[in-house]
């Protein structure tokens, strides 16, 4: 398999395109490719080529090295989440668990947080998905319509508890059915009993200095 990847890579395809051609996940291709490159690269002090000075051309990465988990509405019963880790989080996880990053299990935990202020332990319902290695995105299917969810990306402790590494924004599944029941939240909003809507509005006013007062 690696021979095929190398061939395609030599023809100038991106890893994304190779993954598509070979019908593999990009994660797998990236993993194989990196492994291959590690094996190929000779000790630098012996074979180091003359240093070429040229302006680095930026090319699109497979993911960014930032701690981020983003949950996106998809259908009435599915959501999409993508994520990436910073080196800092990887190092801390290795430090805390005294286990190599690659050996830590990847787990996604989904929380139903409809109408609650979620602090980590008070979800209506939760479930966990064991993720294949090198995964950085997931479609979460078979959800209940008209609910609010939050996704955590994490790992498992030695005694089997879920340990959160990343937490996503909340996202909603849309309603699947018509409903003519009275909507309290809308009524309170219409009658100006609240200053902020009590439902989820998709757009956060993102600020760079979010945590600085």
């Amino acid at each position: 398999m690696i021979e095929d990847i190398v061939k395609l890579k030599e023809r100038g395809l991106t890893l994304q395109e190779i993954a598509e051609q070979m019908n593999m996940s990009i994660g797998k291709v990236q993993y194989r490719w990196n492994k291959y490159r590690q094996q190929q690269s000779p000790p630098s002090e012996i074979f180091a080529p003359p240093v070429e000075i040229k302006k680095d051309k930026w090319s699109m990465p497979y993911e960014y090295k930032e701690a981020n988990a983003c949950l996106i509405p998809h259908t009435h019963e599915s959501l999409y989440v993508y994520w990436s880790f910073s080196n800092s989080i990887k190092n801390m996880a290795e430090h805390h668990f005294r286990t190599k990053w690659e050996e830590l299990p990847n787990v996604l935990k989904l929380y139903d947080v409809t109408d609650i202020i979620f602090y980590g332990h008070n979800a209506h319902r939760t479930f966990e998905v064991d993720l294949p290695p090198m995964t950085n995105n997931w479609f979460i299917h078979c959800l209940e319509p008209d609910r609010t969810y939050i996704a955590d990306i994490g790992t498992r402790t030695f005694d089997g508890s879920f340990f959160t590494l990343l937490r996503s924004n909340p996202a909603e599944t849309s309603a699947a059915e018509m409903s003519d029941t009275y909507d309290e939240k809308l009524e309170r909003w219409k009658h100006q009993e609240v200053t902020q809507p009590e439902w989820l509005e998709n757009f956060s006013t993102y600020s760079y200095y979010q945590k600085i007062r």
Partner: peptide
């Protein structure tokens, strides 16, 4: 009347699946 609509589109099934699926989901991260 005033009502409260949810996320929806004029695409397939009224959902986001045309603009978010296995072929194009990778775009949104960037």
């Amino acid at each position: 009347e005033t009502v409260r609509p949810a996320f929806s589109t004029w695409g397939k099934n009224g959902t986001g699946e045309v603009w978010l699926n296995e072929t194009n989901a990778w775009m949104y991260r960037h």
